[in-house]
Design a protein around this nucleic acid. Structure first.
Lengths: 237, 237
DNA sequence: CGCTCGGTTGATTATGGTCAATTCGCGTGG
DNA sequence: CCACGCGAATTGACCATAATCAACCGAGCG
């Protein structure tokens, strides 16, 4: 992105203000009217919905650099809840500060416009994933997406990244039971595609995983707007 | 919405320019860079993706009043294709006209902002639907959503609407095989919830259908922006 | 040391997919 | 007017994928 030095300073300043939250913390719930924008600095957060039968569906991941936005004009109640998956560091931006930031930093505002397009593309990709792919394909697709998204902020070097997500959360993400997630994970391991030990994921055969998932990354291409300064100097290509 | 008389005239003028397209016509395909915005005046269109295994996933329905938007600043290639489901009448708006319309009609532009929020909410709802609900629940949810969306443009009176969608298309929408769709439809009929004959759907027990689907319409509430003048004077409440 | 959470395993069941044949509705051409 | 043909809907038989239930393991923590 074509952010100015001033824009970047602004983002650095934001990144300094992070508050810590433990894993599995609800931040906002459905039908709340949010008064803060939230920038993820560290850890994974997500949007999710509960059904009355107890099932939970995660509808989006927020990884470092992702922003939970406010709609400016209308104050619509949320259509889904927001919470952390892992321990997180979050920058909490009250509405006035958020509006002010967008006014003062038009290039950042432009970047957010792009981010919205990417977010919608990801949602459509998830619909395709849930509707049209088998268990192993679904999981493979999700892991490929995470790899690319984490790369844009330098959080994935090579083909591995920190992945401290429980299998139960994965199940809620991919619309499967956690027993089944466990078996699908084992299949990917058995096929030598991935290695998942501790809280770190290594993709052993990136090409194989992409083939299995029919992964086409073009929907993410425009996503190269790290709102969070990269940790490493240069994200892996 | 708070559109002015001038805004409405503008929309009326647009609605007069519609071109007709037969059912199942591809309009744009994936990775195209669109040069026209498209307003649906009549019939159903959709966004969809093909996988190489032949499966197709529909990711969004465009019903009369819905707009296929252009992104103004970036000319991103499409992440999914666009085509008609039924015979359609569409207003095709070349990019310059579209940009011009938004410049001249700030209230319409504001309305589109709201539309985008609703679209995203619908996508998240679909993710939940595909990931967390059984066949009958999924179908019921979809039918409830269509009822409400068609009501906003006066295309559903009471609890029935014209529904000329093939079972194969329904299958591609809900991530099931068309054999299964057929059986699920029969179950809803057998349970006295709906009647679907010819190309018309009647919801016999609206409350029952909503209960089955756990349908909560709040994600659609803000959608009351018919870009297409209502046929009837007053959409059903 | 024992508890708890997350991960793993096996057995059983259910939901939904696939294949293949049949029927129905409807428009077309003889 | 009727036979034909085509796409869509329907049905049955069989199979695969994934859910459920229940038990067990293993690491980390108070």
């Amino acid at each position: 992105m074509d952010l100015t030095a001033g824009d970047l300073r602004e983002l650095e300043r934001l990144a300094a203000t992070g508050r810590r939250f433990p894993a599995q913390t609800p931040l906002l719930h459905q039908s709340d009217v949010p008064e803060n924008a939230i920038l993820v600095l560290d850890g994974f957060a997500c949007r999710y919905k509960y059904l009355t039968n107890g099932r939970r569906q995660i509808t989006a991941y927020l990884v470092p650099g992702d922003l939970f936005e406010l709609d400016l004009e209308y104050r619509l109640p949320l259509d889904c809840a927001l919470g952390t998956l892992t321990a997180c560091r979050l920058a909490v931006l009250p509405r006035p500060d958020y509006e002010d930031l967008l006014r003062r930093r038009p290039r950042i505002a432009r970047g957010l416009q792009m981010m919205r397009l990417t977010e919608a593309a990801i949602l459509r990709e998830w619909i395709t994933n849930l509707g049209s792919r088998s268990g192993p394909e679904r999981l493979a697709h999700f892991l490929c997406e995470m790899l690319l998204r984490l790369r844009t902020t330098g959080l994935a070097s090579d083909n591995q990244y920190s992945f401290p997500i429980t299998q139960a959360d994965l199940a809620d993400t991919l619309g499967m039971s956690c027993v089944h997630i466990n078996r699908v994970l084992q299949k990917l391991r058995r096929d030598g595609l991935i290695e998942l030990s501790g809280r770190r994921l290594t993709i052993l055969k990136p090409e194989g995983l992409r083939t299995l998932a029919e992964y086409d990354a073009s929907y993410l291409e425009p996503a190269a707007i790290p709102l969070r300064p990269c940790v490493s100097d240069r994200p892996a290509a």
